[in-house]
């Protein structure tokens, strides 16, 4: 079991009002699974993804990632988990605008700490080549198309060989043709054994996954298998 989530709740305290973003989520994800989390905005799917990605911590409940209880880790330990075990792909790519692609992709290795600069750049270049961006290494993100940027972002997410790839609306900012290309890459990664978790409100995207979790009002409403 790669991910085991038990009775997860997340409450935002906004002074007078309390917002219950998650109201008790139980979820288990096997290694190698291709999962989609679906739901309308406000359903809690983003909050769940943030907790799964260790960017946020649950108010109550347990989250075990790869056998390690992460709901009780300190900020620094969570940073380490994000760095080594989780790869993020964002809707708006989130590449750093002032550095070139190789540097962007190598950035997680920088925070990893023990990788030499030459090795970092070498691995980043190799990762970019695998995703068909070998000719763009020294380009800045704003010199690239949306599809190329998202491919670079995937390269960055994969550079530390994470145990799970979290993709938040990965095709949301792309036209349908480029979106299909990105989904092909994610399908390929899944086929190669990578655990992939999509977060989306788009049924066409979700149907790529083998299992779809539908969220409603901070809880899992139902699950589909395809």
């Amino acid at each position: 079991m790669l991910i085991a989530v038990d009775g997860l709740t997340r409450t935002y305290d906004l002074g007078e009002a309390k917002v219950h973003a998650l109201r008790g989520v139980d979820l288990a994800v096997e290694a190698g699974e291709y999962l989609a989390i679906m739901g309308p905005s406000g359903s809690g799917k983003s909050t769940l993804m943030h907790i799964l990605g260790c960017l946020d911590t649950p108010s109550t409940g347990r989250y075990v990632l790869g056998g390690e209880e992460v709901s009780s880790l300190t900020g620094r330990e969570l940073a380490k988990v994000r760095n080594r075990r989780i790869g993020f792909v964002f809707q708006n790519f989130n590449l750093l605008p002032r550095i070139d692609l190789v540097a962007n992709v190598a950035l997680p290795l920088v925070y990893h700490g023990s990788v030499s600069k030459a090795e970092r750049l070498g691995r980043a270049a190799k990762q970019l080549e695998e995703l068909g961006l070998g000719h763009r290494l020294k380009h800045r993100p704003n010199e690239l198309s949306g599809g190329e940027r998202q491919r670079a972002a995937i390269a960055r997410a994969l550079i530390n060989e994470p145990s799970i790839l979290l993709a938040d609306e990965p095709t949301g900012n792309l036209d349908s043709k480029t979106g299909r290309e990105i989904m092909d890459i994610l399908d390929g990664l899944s086929a190669a054994g990578k655990t992939v978790c999509l977060v989306t409100h788009d049924a066409n995207v979700a149907e790529h996954a083998g299992r779809t979790v539908h969220m409603q009002d901070g809880a899992i409403a139902r699950e589909d298998f395809s």
Binding site: G53, L55, R82, R84, F90, N94, L95, N160
Partner: peptide, 16 residues
């Protein structure tokens, strides 16, 4: 701010 968020998401600690 977004850049800081991205750095943290890919593994930068507050100390970094």
């Amino acid at each position: 701010i977004r850049e800081i968020g991205v750095r943290k998401a890919i593994g930068a600690s507050s100390r970094d």
